[in-house]
């Protein structure tokens, strides 16, 4: 493959204490993702797909093994280092914890730019407007998250993941709270991102959605059981 190696997962294992015993959620997982790929990680609940995503975003750390993202060894970063890294390098869409409650939809999208100190204030305003437009939330710009539907919140979170124009975006069931129509619209947006050279990696339980991506990695019982490029 000619494009650049972006994610390199090497023999990652993760164990959690559950109740009184330990559960091995990820078992010696290795794979690579190159720039410009559109990857779906699928699997049943409990297969370890969300945990795997957490390893890639530095949200959680492996028990053993290494994760390199764009050459950065995540193990080398402190919690704060991770925050600074995330700010500029990646975008994340969570399934549930989407928006900061006290901030309007627009402010939520603006926040990562301010945190990373990217763009001038004027540029920020313009970017926020454009990003809102992309996800069809222009009219909800000044609303508080508690006033908009779950689907709207999730779309705002999708817009926010792209706030700092990262090359790599992760999503954990990024369309899970949306009806099929808006889910499809979001999917088109993801495809658009990939078309412009970004890499998008999402966790989903929907095989139908996964089938529309470029590559499916299927987990079962903490292991990769299938990895195929469509």
């Amino acid at each position: 493959m000619s494009s650049k190696l972006l994610i390199d997962v090497q023999q990652v294992t993760k164990r959690f204490p559950v109740g009184h015993h330990e559960v091995e959620v990820l078992k010696d997982i290795s794979f690579q993702v190159h720039e410009g790929e559109f990857v779906a990680i699928v699997g049943q609940s409990g297969s370890g797909k969300s945990t795997l995503l957490n390893m890639l975003t530095g949200v959680d750390r492996p028990t053993s093994g290494e994760v390199f993202v764009n050459g950065q060894r995540l193990k080398d970063l402190s919690e704060d280092g991770l925050a600074h890294w995330r700010r500029r390098e990646i975008g994340i869409v969570f399934q549930f914890f989407n928006l900061v409650p006290g901030l309007t939809v627009a402010q939520n999208i603006r926040l990562p730019m301010e945190l990373a100190d990217l763009y001038t204030p004027l540029e920020r305003t313009a970017r926020v407007a454009a990003l809102l437009d992309q996800v069809g939330l222009a009219e909800r710009a000044t609303w508080l998250p508690s006033r908009v539907s779950g689907g709207d919140q999730q779309r705002a979170a999708i817009a926010r993941a792209n706030a700092n124009d990262p090359r790599l975006i992760f999503g954990d069931e990024p369309t899970g709270r949306q009806d099929p129509r808006s889910a499809a619209a979001c999917f088109d947006l993801f495809q658009e991102w990939v078309d412009t050279g970004k890499t998008f990696l999402m966790v989903t339980h929907s095989r139908a959605l996964a089938a529309r991506t470029g590559r499916t990695i299927e987990l079962a019982d903490g292991r990769v059981i299938r990895d195929e490029v469509h």
Partner: peptide, 11 residues
């Protein structure tokens, strides 16, 4: 009856 209520988000 066994009724499904469906619709886009915000419907």
């Amino acid at each position: 009856e066994f009724v499904a209520v469906v619709g886009p988000s915000g419907s």
